[in-house]
């Protein structure tokens, strides 16, 4: 069965979607990512969609689900690299991906994840005092 690879880099999981996903592939990615977060204790997930030429309501929902599930599992998600034509179409379709963190590119996405983790650690420190 085809799968989208999930790479681990330190505290983070990285996913680059480079194929036109059929629905089952998107569902499998959602399941794989949540189980990997649980297994690795990852603090952040970066999803690079710069190669995606289209995001419809199904893929949009998958992205929103991953973001919500990872938040519950104490990991932040950032979606990076959305093409402008895809962003325009998504909003017109009626999906604004509220609650999903986005960044322009991988560099900024990683900065965001590191800042999230640093923020959480600072919070934890305060609670322990």
């Amino acid at each position: 069965m085809d799968r989208i690879p999930i790479l681990r880099m330190g505290d983070f999981l990285l996913v680059t979607i480079q194929v036109d996903m059929h629905d089952q592939l998107a569902m499998t990615l959602q399941d794989d990512l949540t189980s990997q977060i649980e297994k690795t204790g990852a603090k952040g997930v970066l999803i690079d969609i710069s190669a995606l030429e289209m995001v419809d309501s199904f893929i949009g929902r998958m992205i929103a689900n991953i973001s919500g599930m990872s938040r519950i599992l104490d990991a932040s998600t950032v979606v990076v690299g959305m093409q402008p034509a895809v962003a325009i179409t998504l909003v017109e379709l009626g999906l604004s991906l509220a609650g999903v963190q986005t960044a322009l590119n991988v560099d900024r996405g990683m900065q965001r994840l590191r800042a999230d983790v640093a923020g959480k650690e600072a919070d934890d420190g305060r609670h322990q005092e």
Partner: peptide, 16 residues
């Protein structure tokens, strides 16, 4: 490119 993307996205919704 934007019109292509809109048409492809609409087609994806309706095909589903």
């Amino acid at each position: 490119l934007v019109d292509q993307t809109k048409m492809v996205t609409a087609a994806s919704e309706l095909a589903r």
